[in-house]
Design a protein around this nucleic acid. Structure first.
Lengths: 146, 146
DNA sequence: CTAAATTATCTCGATTTCAAAGTTATTATA
DNA sequence: TATAATAACTTTGAAATCGAGATAATTTAG
């Protein structure tokens, strides 16, 4: 029945939402204990792992409106964790660049962050995680969707 | 290596987040086109499918703070989609109850909502969906986690 | 029966996020 | 060049959410 197929998709949506929210709730606790909010952490981690980023691209990568980027970058700059750097070749562009203090901050936090995520994923075996990664990858790129 | 295991958990966290956000972005568009925001929709759908709910339990089921429940229920009440009903046996308790107008609203929206979710899940085969449901269920109940 | 503890809801203020409009710089067209 | 179109970033104001405290009702202990 086509109805069963739709019901299964709905079920998948529900368990996907639950899993994400359950995991995230705990991940965010660790982050917030560090004094940053989840968005600030995401920006700083992006800069740490991927290098300098133009302001606008930050929004694309962590799904944030342009107005919010300015706000978050302001906060992180005030805390001394990043600085704005003008782009030499295009004066419209400003890069966000992590500072040494910011790097130190991530280095302090990240191991516990990663360990927490690993704990939260421990209900799956190693090979189940591999399966789940493959399945979720397909869901993550809704190509010709509407 | 233990490090590979942690790396795999991190990878799973990333693809889980991406999948959820990608799906949700599109689901929310359909909901918002109906004139409700995602939270309002979640509350109304809960009442439609599960019947009257005490205010407090709404918060538990859709993960919302008590202060927010009052706000959302106010909005839905103003729109005539639900009403507050005093509990006869415990005067501290207020039930939220969907109105006929609210039911009609859900009946109008839900088929498209479900169809959209089904489209967004169409990158998985039926049996892959079953696999994904089983795996995500395990992730969704972080029992003795910290 | 009274006092204390608990429970349900609401109010209030702060935080976060977004959308829309504004500013400034660059690029394309004539 | 001008002029217009585009692009990057900022500002502003509103909406959503939360946390903490307030209010009111109920239950429990003594």
């Amino acid at each position: 029945m086509e109805n069963d197929a739709i019901a299964k998709s709905l079920k998948l949506y529900i368990v996907l939402s639950r899993a994400y929210k359950a995991i995230n709730e705990h991940v965010n606790k660790v982050i917030q204990a560090s004094g940053l909010n989840p968005t600030e952490f995401a920006v700083l981690e992006l800069l740490y792992h991927k290098g300098d980023q133009p302001m606008q691209q930050i929004g694309g990568k962590i799904l944030l409106a342009s107005g919010s980027i300015t706000y978050v970058v302001d906060k992180l700059e005030q805390k001394g964790l990043l600085i704005r750097v003008a782009c030499p070749s295009d004066r419209r562009v400003t890069y966000a660049q992590i500072t040494d203090e910011g790097k130190k901050f991530i280095q302090d936090i990240f191991p516990e962050h990663a360990a927490q995520i690993d704990r939260l994923m421990s209900s799956l075996t190693d090979s189940e995680k591999t399966e789940a990664i493959d399945l979720l990858k397909k869901l993550g790129l809704p190509a010709g969707k509407f």
